[in-house]
Amino acid sequence: MDDFLLRALLAGLGVAAVAGPLGCFVVWRRMAYFGDTLAHASLLGVALGLMTEVGTTVGIALVCVAVALALANLRQVSTIASDTMLGILSHGTLAVGLVVIGTLETVRVDLLSYLFGDILAVTWADLALVYGGGALLLLVLMKIWRAMLAITVHEELAAVEGVRTGWARLVYTLMVALVIAVGMKVVGIILITSMLIIPAAAARRFARTPESMALLASLFGVFAVLLGLGGSMRYDMPSGPAIVAAAFGLFVITGIVAHIRMALKSRTEA
């Protein structure tokens, strides 16, 4: 296997493994659109990161946290429904990000690679970020797992029981931002949310506990990367979209399987 293929494969697998458990929380907390908003806003983070030379990852993290804080505060004072607010921030930050990137004369930016990913251009440094950041994310997630679950089920009940809810939410937002930052190379800003929600949604059909759903989501994600990258090599398809299309295919097939299984079960019970 060529070096660049190996790197692409490793990067994809790493991102899928981390996106599974984090994506479960996106699904459980009904935050799919929030994830999308963070993804779009991250292009602004890329622009600011390049402009100020703090680096794209730091830029993305800062912008994501700023957007999350803005949303939390606007929700309390605004008369606009929160999905409208999400739409405004989502497209507003994406547009500003595009404008800023367009004005950067000193840096040549391949916009398409940010929007749709460029997994074949993954470097060894990128890989170090994927696995270093990924390992850190999973460690932190394990540490706050019960608190996050408690907040997901009922925030005020968790607060009364001693969970520091504001803190846990901030950490979680940062984790989503980091996944977006490292996943961007693989599938791009436009499609990164799908790596969070599609494997998780497919996993729900076979899971009986939160932990088994998180594990299955990782497995489905890994499988989608293998399928998508394989197809991309064989048929010369764009690799980011191919991975997401594979995840989508898995979602449809698992849906049919789950449906048949349920029909069989109710027949044997009848």
Binding site: R30, H154, L157, T209
Partner: peptide
């Protein structure tokens, strides 16, 4: 504390036993 409403998303697989154990 027993709150007034509980709205758990159906996407979260959670038994009652596990729900109780989430209390800490």
């Amino acid at each position: 504390y027993m709150p007034q409403k509980l709205a758990i998303d159906r996407a979260l697989p959670l038994t009652a036993r596990r729900f109780i154990r989430l209390s800490g």
